[in-house]
């Protein structure tokens, strides 16, 4: 039991990371129809700038502000300047285009910060408690708590505010919502902004919990997409559950010798299986509806 408990707790801590990113992806996807593959790169840019400022001796609070500010700015820049040019293309094209943005951000980061061992240390790393034999740092607890809180807060925002209502309207039927007078541009801007804030926050969390490396953080978006898929790109609660499940499966797979070397594939296998299960009752697909 001891080993199982250890890997379970660890899996939840990792899963929180996937869940947090997944939620950031889903809220943007719901409101704007864009699956943002640059999400990881945006968060990484925030974290790198925060690290640089903290190297210069700035307090951690400034680092946090810089990370979230940078990520929000980048997200808004794409949302306002580039995304509108593609708004009438199909969702896949809009998703694929964000990869171009991700590559731009990643190469700028690699150009500005030569490959070197770096480490981001947050004040919350020092505190922690022991659960089932594993020591869980404050940062990990915050990540888990944040995943839950952000999910709840965003769900509440969508359910209770006017902007939230408009976002849901946009998500249901864009054209119809626009005809009914939903201010598409401003609602989308809010969505890009919120997604940017979450990207900045999770970027800091990743940089601390995974490692401060632009390439790794940029491509962490792919397992995050897996969590978003579990949530069918719309359900925040399912995304949260999906992220945590993926984390636990990946961690527990360490204990099963034959599959241990392949355990990093857990997000994709879990997501693909769940997706097939969701679709089990569908028979036909019809053009025009995705």
């Amino acid at each position: 039991m001891g080993a199982y408990g250890l890997f379970l707790v660890n899996g939840l801590a990792v899963g929180a990371i996937y869940a947090l990113s997944g939620v950031g992806l889903v809220i943007l996807c719901r409101a704007t129809g864009v699956l943002n593959l640059a999400y990881g790169a945006i968060g990484a840019a925030g974290a790198m700038i925060a690290w640089q400022l903290m190297q210069y001796g700035c307090p951690e609070a400034i680092g946090w502000l810089a990370a979230i500010g940078t990520a929000t700015l980048l997200s808004l820049a794409y949302g306002r300047l580039i995304a509108p040019h593609l708004s009438f293309r199909e969702p896949v094209v809009r998703a694929v285009a964000t990869l171009g943005f991700a590559i731009m951000i990643l190469s700028l980061m690699n150009f500005s910060w030569v490959e070197a061992p770096r480490r981001l240390t947050l004040a919350t790393d020092a505190i922690g408690l022991s659960i089932l034999g594993m020591r869980v740092t404050g940062t990990r607890l915050i990540a888990l708590l944040a995943a839950v809180l952000v999910t709840l807060a965003v769900a509440l925002f969508l359910a209770a505010t006017q902007t939230g209502l408009r976002m849901r309207a946009l998500a249901n039927d864009r054209d119809l919502a626009a005809v009914l007078g939903v201010p598409v541009v401003s609602v989308e801007t809010v969505a890009w902004g919120i997604s940017g804030v979450i990207a900045g926050f999770s970027g800091m969390m990743f940089a601390d919990l995974v490692r401060l490396n632009p390439t790794v953080l940029t491509f962490l978006v792919i397992p995050a997409v897996a969590a978003a898929i579990v949530g069918r790109l719309e359900s925040l609660m399912l995304t949260l559950a999906g992220g945590l499940t993926i984390g636990v499966v990946e961690s527990m797979a360490t204990l099963i010798r034959p599959v241990a070397p392949f355990r990093a594939a857990a997000p994709f296998v879990v997501a693909a299986l769940l997706m097939l299960w969701y679709q089990r009752h569908r028979r036909l697909t019809f053009a025009g509806r995705d």
Binding site: E90, A95, A226, L233, M275, D290
Partner: peptide, 14 residues
């Protein structure tokens, strides 16, 4: 059974 972005993501997972 599925198409569009959602199907594209299945292939991305693969």
């Amino acid at each position: 059974r599925m198409r569009g972005l959602y199907f594209a993501l299945v292939t991305l997972m693969a």
